[in-house]
Amino acid sequence: MDWSLLVASFIHDLALAAYVGGAIAMEFILAPAQASIPPAQAQIMGEKSSGRFLILVWVSLILILLTGIYRLYWRGLLFGESFLVAPLTWDYSYGRTLLVMTVFWCILMINGALITFVFRPILSGKMQAGSSSSQGREAMDAKMKAATWVQNLTRVDVGLAVATLLLGASLSRGGLL
């Protein structure tokens, strides 16, 4: 047994579990628990847990990519006789399944970037001293919209992550598509 492949496979599975399981836990375990405490404390809990979860998400996505590429390379399916070696081509179910998984991964990265660099800064933005009431209302509206976007993107991410996991489980039998 090649140890580098074993370590890569272990890290791949761990990163996958952290992402999928973490997303489901955030949605179905932490979010309801957050709803059971007063709003001020719920906001603190939400900020701290989502901040830490974003770090987990980024680390997981990068590790999934790196270990995934290594595993394909080790099997001789990448950077072999050609860039993509059969069955990692469009003609095979394995190749098509992996391509769709890669597309899903790209969407997860884009969503992660939107949440981290666009919507979270809006949510954590503070009111300036001396702001007018209309400015205050605008800021609140922007935060509400950002919160809705984050919620919807997170739900899309959970669905895509589960779909990717399902496709990945089919690869040992040659793929699903």
Binding site: L14, A17, A18, V20, I24, A25, L30, A169
Partner: peptide, 22 residues
């Protein structure tokens, strides 16, 4: 395989989430 993969990933990921995030 799908049920098995979902089960271990939710179980493992949930535990990681509770420890590292909560």
């Amino acid at each position: 395989s799908i049920v098995h993969a979902l089960s271990w990933s939710i179980y493992a990921g949930g535990a990681i989430c509770m420890e590292l995030i909560l």
